[in-house]
Design a protein around this nucleic acid. Structure first.
Lengths: 336, 336
DNA sequence: CTGAAAGCGCTTACAG
DNA sequence: CTGAAAGCGCTTACAG
């Protein structure tokens, strides 16, 4: 690729002048600037990003961490959608995205070391199940601007759905449909899971309904077979629930499958709800009753906050931002 | 971050010596090397990747292009899975992944210019619908090593499923189940679509079956509502198909939805098949009859080929590599 | 075996 | 308004 030196020779001016002309400095005559710009575009010249980064301490590159114990990574639709939106937003602001890994070339290193070597301007932590991993804490506590999806850390910006209110709306809707015996197969413990559970209990209580402890069982997010197993347990109880809430939309298929096998019609004989509002549930018929998380907004907000933090650290507060969810009534919760 | 200069002062040797010790040169005494290594790890020193890249003309970074006209990007499960596998494989070989965009900072540029500025060691082109876009051609014809998913370019490595054989197995299976009136809603024109179509015609002919032109309609990949529309048309024909093949698994939901609305039972009264073998069809009951593309293998093979091309250009041939597919019989094609 | 020097491609005080 | 010089953090011939 042509270098700034080639360009300066072509223009017959010094390298310094070329650089200043290109970077919009004002102590350059309009004539010279025009000359430089013309030759630059003729030669297809663009400054080397590495050299520029080295000098300016700014890479215009954001590190994204996708690491979860089940190694779903981009295979998790929810996070893939968030990343897609995040990517679109940051790219419009001139930042690229690079995944954070454990090595460069054949050197092994920690995530933080990777970020330091690559000189990322900021970091987005998403799709992590192990929030207590010391490597994650090291990242969050570093001096690199960080935004975290779906988890609250002291001293970092967090973006997450309003799980409490989302769950409230869902449960209230189900109760309004006449259900009292509601089972909740919740995901593995996490702050998100905790908030949803708390909300579940609260709304039940507010409505004067008692929570049947047999109906609260731990499943796993996105694990269909585990949800099937638990659904089987629930349907074998002498006192059965009239409605089952799955950890998420995807695992809700597990509830449907078991019902199908037992010849139980949904929603006529059993109601089901999910959480997430992911793609395929929109087109499945009947539409799944669920709480839609606004993945586009989550990604975009994460991007916006992170870039603010990078570019205006002193006016960006490190708070957690809750995004509204939307109740999708769908057709899998029957009016009793 | 600590620089090599800090480290050299700590060690009391020159910067050159430190660099050589770190990089495994042999003209360094074992004593000195040990000293340097010890201090390096104590200080948490890692060489700045940008400075290194500048000097060595090697970034250990691969550009990935995700650009499709429908702006699905990572939201397309098929490509998200391929990318996940690609990412895992290249990272194990020490390469990072950065998405190719149209700008860095506030400079607009072409994809190629972006790659040149970032000095990517190689490029993976995936998730592209516009293979004739001049920007894509520019990338493919550049001197940067390139691997392309799902499209064959002269002079570039291509990775794709064996669509011809995959389709053969699917159609033959459907025919063996006793179907003669098979409709094929195919995706938008592309080389992949073309090969599947050709294969469809060929297998029909080989089996002495005539293709009913009314049964061959153009839909769109991953477009459920379009598939619903076309399914409606097909089911309104006086002579109806007994089996409908959708552009892919996702759009196959469209066929199922229309059937559901009309009270047509699948597979008892109408058979359906898809293509891709994506996640949710594995857990949907009855399992969709489909052709599974081995997304893990596609991503891994793309990674392997690209890295070979980067590291050993003279022993890596620019060919297209076809990966085997697998017929998933599932339960949506009835034995007539 | 070690180190001074040049250079990768840029930017930016500083002097003129 | 323009340009020579220093420097960002590295690597690597080259000299000793």
């Amino acid at each position: 690729m042509a270098t700034i030196k080639d360009l300066s020779m072509k223009c017959g001016v010094s390298v310094s002048t070329v650089s200043k002309a290109l970077n919009g400095y004002h102590d350059i005559s309009e004539q010279t600037r025009a000359l430089v710009l013309r030759h630059a575009s003729e030669m297809g010249y663009f400054p080397d990003a590495n050299a520029r980064a080295l000098k300016m301490k700014k890479t215009c590159n954001i590190g994204v961490l996708y690491m979860d114990s089940s190694r779903q990574s981009l295979r998790n639709e929810y996070f893939a959608h968030i990343l897609a939106s995040f990517k679109e937003k940051v790219s419009r602001r001139g930042y690229d995205i690079t995944f954070i890994e454990h090595n460069i070339g054949n050197r092994k290193m920690s995530y933080l070391e990777h970020c330091k070597q690559r000189n990322f301007d900021g970091i987005c932590i998403a799709c992590v199940t192990e929030f207590n991993d010391p490597e994650i804490l090291e990242l969050v506590n570093s001096d690199i601007p960080v935004v975290v999806i779906d988890h609250v850390f002291n001293g970092a910006i967090s973006i997450l759905s309003d799980n409490i209110n989302g769950m409230r709306e869902l449960i209230q809707y189900i109760i309004n449909q006449g259900h009292k015996d509601i089972a909740y197969i919740h995901g593995t413990k996490s702050s998100v899971t905790h908030n949803r559970l708390v909300s579940f209990y609260n709304i039940m209580n507010e409505n004067g309904l008692e929570v049947n402890e047999d109906f609260i069982l731990e499943g796993e997010y996105r694990n269909v077979s585990k949800t099937e197993e638990i659904t089987d347990k629930l349907l074998n109880l002498s006192k059965k629930p009239t409605c089952i809430i799955a950890p998420d939309d995807y695992s809700a298929l597990g509830v449907m499958n078991v019902a199908g096998r037992r010849g139980i019609k949904i929603p006529q004989e059993l109601s089901v709800a999910g959480f997430d509002g992911i793609l395929f549930t929109k087109v499945l018929e009947p539409n799944l009753t669920t709480v839609r998380q606004d993945v586009d907004a989550i990604g975009a907000e994460a991007a916006k906050q992170l870039i603010n933090l990078i570019e205006s650290p002193m006016t960006t507060s490190l708070e957690s931002i809750c995004l509204q969810t939307q109740l999708i009534e769908g057709g899998t919760v029957k009016k009793l």
